[in-house]
Design a binder for these strands. Structure first.
Lengths: 211, 211
DNA sequence: ATAAAAAAGTTGCAATTGCAACATAAAAGG
DNA sequence: CCTTTTATGTTGCAATTGCAACTTTTTTAT
């Protein structure tokens, strides 16, 4: 999530107070370690303080799906995504995560601290933007062909970039898992898109040609 | 959405007060009328008081996607779904909808009315359950074959039903649009599923056999 | 620096899917 | 009640996709 995190607009002093009040836990994970088994079945949310991770799922055929890419300040957890039994979060770099129980976050403390209001609004904003993201992803996955999936994803990435040049946030292998298609079929389609003049590529730097 | 609506847990008297405070508008729509053009580009949310509707999108190939089925007490709007330029909501029966500006809903009024807290928590709960729904849909659409899409959707529907018998909430034509697949290919696959003993059907009443 | 591992890139082929074009059944509308 | 529309059900065929099996390139680790 691109959001400045849950504590945006709250001063450091208050954040420190809250973290104590919420019994927040700070944890560190090495690259390639699985993060989420620690918080499963609990209404806990994680805030990525440093590093990156992928939220992934393997289906019974062994196909990997990348559900979400987590970056700095990303917020994740069962409330934000369906962190079901078969979903895990794997660190793609060394990272540091803050865990907070969702209940603490939402249930206003009796003192009615002023910053609680800001906090709740932040959570609302995060949930809203999460919904927007999910809908974008749905729009992509609802395309019937690999070509259309690629094009609508690229359109999303190129949208606000000058000259419609953007950097793919994935490796091509990961991109296939993100789009839920076979990697080799996707590579073939990318080649076709290049030949048909829809895109130009230079590694992960892609230019989406204006039609 | 299955949620009891935004006002759950708030007494009728307070609701009436709030509706005035929020400048809520009540509108009626005949079957097959488009609802959403009225609220587009505005941070307005709709609460379905009576009737049903579909949230749909047509892509440039003319394929219809059913994004969501709206029922009584469903809440919809840009905050809850990405009601973009190409998305519309069409009444599938005569219906009555309450429109409220989202800003009013979230921004606590100065008086700090007690029920505002309940309201905010309700909105949070609705957004959370919306996210769960979107993730379920994503899980279905991320399946690589029509067969797996059907099976995971049926699994969802059968989950809490006795004998795993459930009623399809769609016509088969709509189901194809919901799963983003070709209708005839889907019908063929349903036939295969029957022949292979995975399901039994009687119209829209489907039994998902235990494996 | 070099070996090992991962990613990118290819290709043939079989399986699945979408498309078009139907027939039949059911529902809606007057 | 009859007509018209919509939904369901089928099928052949062409196009797309997934799968498997590779080679080449790039990255990572020692």
């Amino acid at each position: 999530m691109q959001v400045k995190s849950i504590f945006e607009g709250i001063n450091d002093e208050d954040i420190t107070k809250m973290l104590k009040c919420f019994e927040a836990r700070r944890m560190q994970f090495k690259k390639d370690r699985t993060i989420v088994t620690n918080i499963i079945n609990v209404k806990t949310i994680g805030i990525m303080l440093k590093g990156t991770a992928n939220m992934i799922r393997y289906d019974y055929n062994g196909n990997r799906s990348i559900i979400e890419k987590l970056e700095e300040n990303s917020v994740f957890g069962e409330v934000f995504s369906r962190l079901g039994n078969d979903i895990s979060v794997v660190a793609t770099s060394d990272c540091e995560i803050l865990f907070i129980d969702y209940e603490h976050l939402v249930k206003r403390c009796k003192k009615g601290c002023s910053y609680h209001c800001t906090l709740t609004n932040n959570v609302l904003r995060i949930l809203s933007s999460k919904i927007v993201e999910l809908n974008q992803r749905l729009e992509i996955l609802s395309k019937r062909s690999i070509r259309d999936k690629l094009l609508s994803y690229f359109e999303l990435l190129a949208n606000d970039k000058p000259n419609r040049i953007f950097l793919l946030p994935f490796s091509y292998t990961e991109l296939a898992d993100y789009l839920s298609v076979d990697r080799s079929a996707m590579m073939r389609e990318i080649k076709n898109l290049k030949e048909d003049g829809f895109i130009r590529t230079n590694g992960r730097r892609i230019t989406l040609m204006s039609y």
